[in-house]
Amino acid sequence: MNLPLQTTNIAVPEKGIRPLLREAKSLSFWAENAAPIGLIALVIVFAILSPTFLSIGNIRAMLVAAAILVILAVAQSFVITTGGIDLSISATMTLGAVGFGIAWQAGFGFWISAIIAILSAGVIGLINGLLIAKGKVTDFIATLGTLSVATGLALIVTSGKPVSITSPDLLRLTTGSVWIVGYPFIIALLVGVVGWFVMFRTRFGLHVQAVGGSEEAAVANGVNASRVRMAVYLIAALLAGLASLLLVARIGAAEPAINTSYLLNSIAAVVLGGVSLTGGRAKIVGPILGALLLTALTNGLTLLGVSQFYQPLAVGLVVVLAALLTRFQKK
């Protein structure tokens, strides 16, 4: 009964520049690498059009400006890898900022206020996780609800007024730097490195990918899917809390503002980074590059004197283009 068994070969990718060139002819190459290619293209175009774009000062400013979005993109990437989405992420960040402001006003020092900021953001993540993992509420609806709840809470506890904060620690956070890399970006990079490690080198990360790929199969193999879902929403919220510190430091005040653009851009960065919204394929570097790309785009347009009104339009076009490209990703 033994048939002659042939071996079917699955192509093993070769190394070197030649296969890279060959691959460049296929659409999937562009789809897989939309974020780095887009980033390089943007940098080249803006560098030609504006002499200040690649100046040390501007690079420094861009990196600092990108820090919050990088953190939110990493956070969103964890959620989206499970096939979910966190629409409340920027509202959670706002609530964290307000938490910081209230604690600061009450006379707590920087560190305790920072912890309160992160914890108050974490509460929203906990609610998201419970609603989605235990309550089986659709992620979209649950986080839309908590978006509104967090925004409302932030407005209520501050009576809608910003709490201005003058803290030497916060000042050091925004102005300090190692060479041209400001502290905010260093924190964001650390988040990226730890996020990458957790996603690709730990048991938890594998479970996140497994739940996103096929919850049924993951559960059959003993993965506790609802715990994984709880965890990703909690991680996202805690990272939003961390980002809220950078936000407060940047503005110099805890504002109950809505920050919708951070929400849209965090999802946009993840999509630019080549992560499918259906889940299962994890990426961390891609979304970080996506966040840098979006920041460079906004910065470049500002430098060129393009009206602020055109910026959402440009971001939207880039994201839609990236989403179209992801259709050609290799399966």
């Binding site: 048991r203 594998l206 990918q209 497994a210 790929g213 096929s214 049924e216 199969a217 059959a220």
Partner: peptide, 24 residues
């Protein structure tokens, strides 16, 4: 071995081997 095989398509063969009982 379930009829639907309980494999996660997006993951590699070795990852599928060890989901739920990873070596660390």
């Amino acid at each position: 071995v379930q009829q639907n095989l309980a494999l996660v398509e997006e993951l590699t063969v070795w990852q599928n081997f060890f989901i739920g009982r990873e070596k660390t």
